[in-house]
């Protein structure tokens, strides 16, 4: 249960090796969360990550999870609820980022990645939402992206999956209204981390820690949407208004 000061007790991370996901979980544990389940492909999470969370005082469980197999997602949620009890925070943090050029060459890979980045979040999100609704409390943290706020030529396959995810998260949040369960939509800009290694950071790039800090603050204040950094929100208010002829020429 979330307590009076905003700390939670249990956390489920789907995509248990995600850098951003683990950074959020570590902060939640530091703030008092005592039971964590990391759901990762093959049921493997690097020992040092497990150790780190255990040293912070959490009981950590690991379970096999494959984002590309939606038929298994309900089971994973049920397993987590059986092990942890009520799920206070669920964070689907899995995702793949390929280059647009690679997607252009291989449409099948593109479709497969979209199935994970969008379809996987739909099945995992709906399964989690069902449980949260039954509980009458709990937050689903959806890691959207500004890439989906207005899709750019430079990464439109990834961006369109994020656009779909963002819309899904908004609709799900509205559907859960009044149930006690909530959705937090996180819209980071370019995040410098393992997933973007070798790429040149875009303007207003942020680090993994900044994203995690912003998520913690948003969970505490029960915000519906958080932009990281916060100034991306006014920036995108303007960018959404740019004529297509200019938007099309955006270098990246």
């Amino acid at each position: 249960m979330r307590n009076a000061l905003g700390s939670v007790d249990t956390v489920l991370l789907l995509g248990g090796r995600s850098e951003i996901g683990l950074a959020i979980v570590a902060r939640l544990v530091r703030d008092g969360a005592s039971r964590v389940m990391l759901a990762a492909r093959g049921g493997t999470v690097p020992d040092e990550e497990l150790e780190r969370l255990r040293r912070l005082g959490a009981e950590v469980h690991v379970v096999d999870f494959d984002a590309s197999r939606p038929e298994t997602h309900q089971d994973v949620i049920d397993t987590a609820a059986a092990k942890l009890g009520d799920l206070d925070v669920v964070i689907p943090a899995f995702g793949v980022l390929g280059s647009q050029a690679a997607y252009d060459r291989d449409p099948e890979v593109a479709a497969r990645d979209v199935a994970v980045n969008f379809g996987g979040h739909v099945s995992a999100g709906l399964a989690a939402a069902r449980r949260l609704r039954e509980q009458g409390h709990g937050t689903l943290v959806v890691l959207s992206s500004v890439a989906g706020v207005r899709v750019r030529r430079a990464n439109f396959v990834y961006g369109s999956a994020k656009a779909g995810l963002d819309g899904f998260a908004q609709g799900l949040g509205d559907a859960l209204h009044g149930s006690g369960a909530r959705v937090l939509i996180v819209r980071p800009g370019f995040v410098i981390g393992r997933m973007t290694e070798g790429m040149t950071p875009a303007p207003m790039a942020v680090g993994v820690d900044e994203v995690a800090d912003a998520v913690i603050e948003a969970l505490r204040s029960r915000a519906r949407v958080v932009w990281v950094p916060a100034r991306l929100r006014p920036a995108f208010t303007v960018m959404r208004l740019l004529p297509q002829a200019i938007w099309r020429r955006m270098p990246r």
Binding site: M1, R2, N3, A4, L5, G136, H137, G178, S179, G180
Partner: peptide, 9 residues
């Protein structure tokens, strides 16, 4: 009475 952490029932 503290009006924190509301939940529905």
């Amino acid at each position: 009475w503290g009006r924190t952490a509301p939940t529905p029932a």
